[in-house]
């Protein structure tokens, strides 16, 4: 017997966009710190109801280049971008989020916006 629900039929699957971002900080941040900062930004900007609609999801953060990927519902890309634009600190240290680009797949996102930061 299944212990997990099955994948949804295609018509009910959420449509996502992937956002590549760079963090400029007064120090380097860990992926855990960035993940938390994205959640806090979403909750304070969109609340828990808006966050449930935007469905931000931390995908990956490369600590060396301080660049990463976050996923969001495709109807709410600009809301999350704005939430990130209003971040002023990460875990007590000053920081700026800069979005590098948006794509419908992680593969294209890496190729177009993250390859120059050493992603492959």
């Amino acid at each position: 017997m299944k212990e997990k629900p099955k994948y949804l039929p295609p018509t009910l699957r959420d449509k996502y966009r992937y956002i590549a971002f760079q963090v400029i900080g007064e120090r380097a941040f860990t992926g855990e710190e960035i993940k938390r900062a994205i959640w806090e930004a979403s909750l304070s900007t969109l609340g828990f109801l808006g966050s449930a609609k935007a469905k931000p999801w931390f995908i990956k953060f490369d600590e060396k280049s301080q660049t990463g990927i976050v996923r969001v519902d495709r109807e709410h890309v600009e809301e999350l971008r704005f939430a990130l634009a209003l971040v002023t600190q990460v875990n007590g240290s000053r920081a700026i989020f800069r979005t590098l680009g948006v794509s419908g797949t992680i593969k294209r996102l890496k190729g177009k916006f993250l390859a120059q930061y050493g992603w492959r």
Partner: peptide, 16 residues
Amino acid sequence: RWEVRGPRDLMSLGIN
């Protein structure tokens, strides 16, 4: 310096 934002991120202010 810490108040600078990228052009596409400033656009998101306008869009919102």
